[in-house]
Design a protein around this nucleic acid. Structure first.
Lengths: 98, 98
DNA sequence: CTATATTTGTCTATATCTGACAAGTCATAA
DNA sequence: TTATGACTTGTCAGATATAGACAAATATAG
């Protein structure tokens, strides 16, 4: 499940139009369309807003949104999976610090 | 172990100067210094070159280099770890495709 | 002190993104 | 068919981010 797909799903389940959500995000409809189709990336702030508007779980949306960015970064790398694991270790290590 | 630290380690074990490696990468010494200290990010192409120059494992260096980028992307997000897992699933799924 | 290696700070050219706009498709209704 | 509303596509300008150069500062060694 991609971020955009999920947004579309939630939007349709609430029977809202792109136009309406776009207005609240203060972008135009074409831009919103691109976000839903994954052609453009939403800003973090827009994800938060969307979660409110769609009464969805912010964490879930942020996770999908972040995962998509990571995926774009690693998708063409043979070492993608290794890098993910190294990152996870680094995260654990730095969380225990301070 | 960070990418830059590893480069420095390898460089010193070979008793090479920043100036020498920088010259081959066609950047100046300050730039190289920044890469070693993680203040600036090396380009993918430069990582490949460095692996050759330092007779190091390209995969290892690419992994550290990529992991650092992922880390920068997720480090401030509460959902970081979740996003990493989602990405891994996405990777597996898309590898089986085609 | 002198010389060499490295680091710090700042500036610019370039590349990359965001969003707007115009025009297009598609579906449905009259 | 024509009209209308929802969405998509293509392109461009402005904003933002980034790589790299340069000058100057700070080690470190002799």
């Amino acid at each position: 499940m991609n971020f955009g797909e999920r947004i579309k799903e939630l939007r349709e389940s609430k029977e809202l139009l792109q136009r309406q959500l776009a207005a609240t995000l203060e972008i135009d409809t074409p831009m919103f369309s691109k976000i839903e189709r994954g052609e453009r990336r939403a800003k973090r702030e827009q994800v938060i807003l969307l979660a409110e508007l769609l009464q969805a779980d912010v964490q879930e949306l942020l996770t999908l949104w972040l995962a998509e960015q990571i995926y774009d970064l690693v998708k063409d790398e043979g070492v993608a999976s290794d890098a993910l694991h190294v990152t996870e270790e680094k995260l654990k290590y730095n969380q225990n610090k301070d």
